[in-house]
Design a protein around this nucleic acid. Structure first.
Lengths: 315, 315
DNA sequence: TGCGGTTATGGTAACGATACCAAGACGCGG
DNA sequence: CCGCGTCTTGGTATCGTTACCATAACCGCA
């Protein structure tokens, strides 16, 4: 049709006819069907699939926003899915994204199996993994300097003289959690401080379970004097429990190191040191990696490690 | 093809052939093209368009999660777009969503013009507006009890004896902001307290501008003794400024009422009262309204007003 | 054996858009 | 006035899928 030409830039169509076409489009409320458009071979769908683990966590909301920002710059939309850390849901989401002909995929992997992420399963769509590494998979990766950040944060507590340092972390299957724990452990080893098994809690995924874990820590005969929180959810849970106890008159004032920044950290009643990193920037970097692939970069898989800075919010 | 029948449930296909088809699918890595699928008339695309104003705000992240949750229950995916409060971007997003054959739209409107939301522009896709009302538009709406919530929060401050109450709010064009200001004003009127123009700041969209506005309030000759924050961003900004001043030794301890809850509110150094509501539930309700329309409900447009509860986080 | 009925299988058309091709209209130079 | 090139326009095929239809194979029963 002449309509297609008109809407596609209007090359070689008489201006008068273009006017008539546009008038008819306006009157009929015609919208080009993008799905039919992307059906023709070689035509891009204009979609980027983004799968994150937990949209309720503002960290991932910001991450998604960073990807969306880069996608929008390139005229693409994002299809967003929430995996909820469930591998089945991740599998299903990835399959669906591929079925919808996404041009590329950005994924925060739940960890564990990754057979659904193999090249032949994804077709032509490049894959960028974010926030978490998956060993043995050929894909671009953007992660934080988890080991170094956790090491620096723990060292700060050790230098302040703490020896009973608790660790609140994510489930074991999440590789990020392992790397952060590695950094934590390395710092203790270096200072010759023994790991106290009763102070290590590594299975909290949400705020409430983190709060309960903190409650149990405080109820120990020999409670910790400092807490290393391996992520935002654990930090908030720990601080909530501290607030509860303060309200009940049983004040506990451990030093806190939090991997992941959070708003109002500087207003906390206990000394909080924050390992700061920019989720939105992480999303942007993931987006840029993806679009470099889409622009034809065929080099080997890259791993970008973003720095984590130590910020003393209150001491 | 027999392939289509096999993947579509396998009715009237010999089990032996089904096995062969599935084996071939596995070997070739075949994925059904969902775009081609939705091309046939009457076939749904399985997509719901969700456009929110600011994904960096955890409130909207949670909202999107609520919609995603309901969509997932119905086997649908969400296409997520960020408008950034820009009407042009909203227009573009909506047009794109329609072009991609979304089955329905959930939108947090930026406010202002809404010609792009008329029925003929959207085709068959039902529209649900969330969080903000748009007068004169025939669509289902889910909003909070903005007026009542703001009224109750302000009343609490007035009953505590405050008469110099500052107001930190969103830009004027956002209808939610107007409604919250209405509730604020109604409470003042009822108690016979005059509105002090120098204490009313209604143009902060982000945390930093809210912090600066708070700084200016404290520097007044006759500073406020309480602050009503009309949304999360303004609350955080105000509290940040309070923290800064405390760190500098110039302690200011106004009472705060915050429309929108936030994590760790109970740990703040000043009395904070929170007008609590559940963003995720808002998203769920919007999603349910949408799916009722998709299930054939053709009744008149409904408006659902979700309650806002007053929670004394710290007093 | 023959006939109606059920089940299995693949051919064809159609969805909406566009690349390609063919053909008509027009202008210009020889 | 003719031939060539350029611009404009619409016909046709195609993308991947599924509804519909036609056909074939098979069964049971009279």
């Amino acid at each position: 049709m002449t309509v297609s030409r008109t809407l596609g830039g209007g090359l070689n169509v008489r201006p008068e006819i273009q006017q008539r076409v546009l008038a008819a489009v306006e009157e009929l409320g015609y919208r080009r069907n993008e799905n039919a458009r992307s059906l023709r071979p070689g035509q891009p769908s204009g979609l980027i699939g983004v799968a994150i683990t937990n949209l309720a966590n503002p960290y991932y909301g910001n991450f998604a926003l960073g990807v969306e920002e880069i996608a929008a710059e390139h005229g693409r939309r994002i299809l967003l899915g929430n995996t909820g850390e469930a591998i089945d849901r991740e599998r299903q989401l990835v399959a669906d994204f591929v079925g919808r002909q996404v041009e590329g995929l950005v994924l925060v992997p739940s960890g564990g199996a990754y057979d659904h992420l193999s090249r032949e399963r994804l077709g032509d769509a490049p894959l960028v993994l974010a926030s978490r590494r998956v060993d043995g998979l050929h894909a671009d990766v953007v992660v934080l300097d988890d080991v170094g950040g956790a090491y620096n944060g723990t060292m700060k507590l050790l230098r302040e003289g703490h020896t009973r340092i608790a660790y609140l972390g994510n489930v074991l299957s999440v590789i990020t959690g392992q790397r952060r724990f590695d950094g934590f452990q390395r710092a203790l080893d270096e200072k010759g401080v023994a790991l106290a098994p009763e102070l290590i809690r590594r299975s909290q995924q949400d705020v409430e379970s983190a709060r309960i874990a903190t409650e149990e820590l405080f109820d120990l005969a020999d409670p910790p004097t400092a807490i290393f929180c391996a992520n935002n959810r654990n930090t908030i849970g720990a601080l909530q429990e501290i607030g509860r106890r303060a309200a009940a008159g049983r004040s506990e004032f451990p030093s806190i190191v939090s991997f992941d920044d959070f708003e109002l950290a500087e207003l906390m009643p206990v000394p909080v040191t924050v390992l700061h990193h920019d989720a939105r920037e992480l999303g942007r970097v993931a987006g840029r990696l993806l679009f470099e692939r889409l622009d034809g970069d065929t080099g080997p898989a890259r791993t970008i490690e973003l720095p984590v800075s130590l910020r003393v919010a209150r001491s």
